[in-house]
């Protein structure tokens, strides 16, 4: 995988602030800075893993990228074409190229629609095919994700969690996308089923040259599936590097703490491993600390960390770290 391919997705200084309404008599509304100035790019056919604790903004980042949320500021480039200013009508052809797989396979499928209707819906919306072509395509998609033809007329409640996630994947694939945001696609599944779904995602990537943004809090699965991994903390990207590099040569104190907390499924190694204890909780994104977002819990924090927000700096080989201490 040494050949240089073009960037399919490029994100520059993306911000997403949510307004939090206060009382009628207050002077101004507060802002929740869910995603606060992140930049990254994903090469065609590769997977970027996005990890972090709940509330760090990884899901918001994924959704803003697809313009399911309107970005507050920043640029989203798809094949070099900026998406953030397009009207809904102009955006429609791009919607076809960018799809999403959701976390909860129970909530993301309409219980009143059959599998065939669920998978056929995007075909109708984008007027891709109808009649016999449409039913052929649905049959093809169902088989592509490892379900059977006679599943087409069944309803979601008749399926297990893993099978439902397959239906969600078939729906995303229906419009032949180039880019898929996978938002915690395996978190709700059993261990033995997780591997089935991850393998399928890898096979599909190889077959159709798909590009993924893989959002998850399962750090070992992210390492397995991703080419590059980004670590988020309180709306900021603190470190991003090639998967192997990040897991073996992590630089940011938060990345170190996060990775040391992953339980190791091997009794001997677990005994030897040392854990970095983090003090306190993640600060509220409504009231983030000044300077570096992590300074309140960082054992190495110095004066500069409390004043200036560190920028991502390249350490060589595309390994970027946002930390004043690391240089």
């Amino acid at each position: 995988m040494t050949q240089t391919t073009e960037n399919l997705i490029e994100v520059k200084h993306l911000k997403k602030y949510f307004d939090v309404k206060k009382g009628l008599f207050s002077r101004s509304d507060r802002q929740l800075k869910a995603v606060d100035d992140i930049s990254f790019s994903i090469k065609k056919g590769e997977t970027l893993g996005l990890v972090g604790e709940s509330g760090c903004g990884k899901t918001t980042a994924g959704r803003t990228l697809l313009r399911l949320y309107e970005p507050t500021s920043g640029q989203i480039l798809f094949h070099g074409k900026p998406l953030e200013k397009l009207t809904h009508k102009e955006l429609l052809p791009y919607r076809k190229k960018m799809q999403m797989i959701f976390q909860d396979p129970y909530a993301s499928l309409d219980p009143r629609m059959t599998v065939g209707e669920i998978i056929g819906d995007p075909l109708d919306v984008h007027r891709i095919c109808k009649g016999k072509d449409r039913s052929d395509r649905i049959r093809e998609l169902v088989e592509l994700v490892g379900l059977k033809r006679d599943h087409i007329n069944r309803y979601p409640h008749e399926f297990s969690g893993g099978q439902r996630q397959r239906i969600g994947i078939a729906r995303a694939l229906a419009v032949e996308p180039e880019f898929i945001v996978c938002d915690e696609p395996i978190s709700a599944l059993d261990v033995s089923i997780q591997a089935q779904v991850v393998n399928m995602l890898e096979d599909l990537q190889e077959r159709f040259g798909l590009t993924y943004l893989f959002i998850s809090h399962d750090l070992s699965m992210v390492r397995h599936i991703s080419h590059k991994v980004g670590v988020m903390y309180l709306g900021s990207l603190v470190e991003i590097a090639d998967a192997h590099e990040l897991y073996t040569n992590m630089q940011h104190p938060y990345t170190k703490a996060l990775l040391s907390a992953v339980p190791i499924p091997d009794p001997d190694l677990a005994e030897k491993s040392e854990r970095i204890h983090l003090q306190g909780d993640v600060p509220s994104p409504l009231d983030p600390p000044p300077g570096c977002a992590f300074q309140t819990r960082c054992a190495y924090a110095v004066a500069a960390c409390r004043e200036v927000k560190p920028e991502l700096k390249d350490m060589g080989n595309g390994h970027q770290v946002a930390c004043h201490i690391v240089s």
Partner: peptide, 20 residues
């Protein structure tokens, strides 16, 4: 087998348990 290996240098396929 269905868990990703801890000391994974190069990519290896996960081996899932088939069926349900």
């Amino acid at each position: 087998r269905s868990m990703p290996k801890v000391s994974e240098g190069e990519k290896k396929k996960l081996i899932p348990i088939p069926g349900s």
